[in-house]
Amino acid sequence: MRRFEATKRVMEAITDELVVCNIGHPAQELFVIRDRPENFYMLGSMGLASSIGLGLAMSQDKKVVVLEGDGAVAMNMGTLATIGLVRPANYLLIIIDNERYGSTGFQPSFTASNLRLDAVAEACGVERVTLIDTEARITPAVERALGANEGPQVMVIKTETGMPDGIGVIPMDGLGIRDRFMRAIGA
């Protein structure tokens, strides 16, 4: 299973949740897998998808699912401490851990060697942390997490590196993505 397959399995469990997605290829893959108004494609601020999701979860009642990368979380690891402090019940952070900086050429990231993000999340006070490495477990695990509404929850999905051919840039600009997303929230 690569990030693409993992994302597909996650999206099979998604109904009306807000989804915030990591920069680069992850967002492009999500667009191909299942574009929907409730998706926010964060195109430039590496690491901030988890924080944007946190702000959303603190400000409205819909459930928020964040699709992050291990490299991005390493860049903004402090926000795990804020998540553990604020403890929003409607917040699920899914870290797709391919142990690489995928979008920039699959250079090894810190989780390939010394960094364990599930342990960091626990150390930040997040009680519900799951580690998944088989594709078949993803959809039921996400369904269960979303059913519980006892967040914050963090799920680390271990994947292989690589991605399918033919994934291209998202044909929407920032304002288009934002406006559609804000209408979906209906705030």
């Binding site: 901030l48 924080s51 944007i52 804020t82």
Partner: peptide, 14 residues
């Protein structure tokens, strides 16, 4: 920087 991420989410939620 993390703060701006959180605030952006808050803004989009009204």
């Amino acid at each position: 920087e993390e703060g701006l991420g959180i605030l952006a989410g808050a803004y989009m939620a009204g």
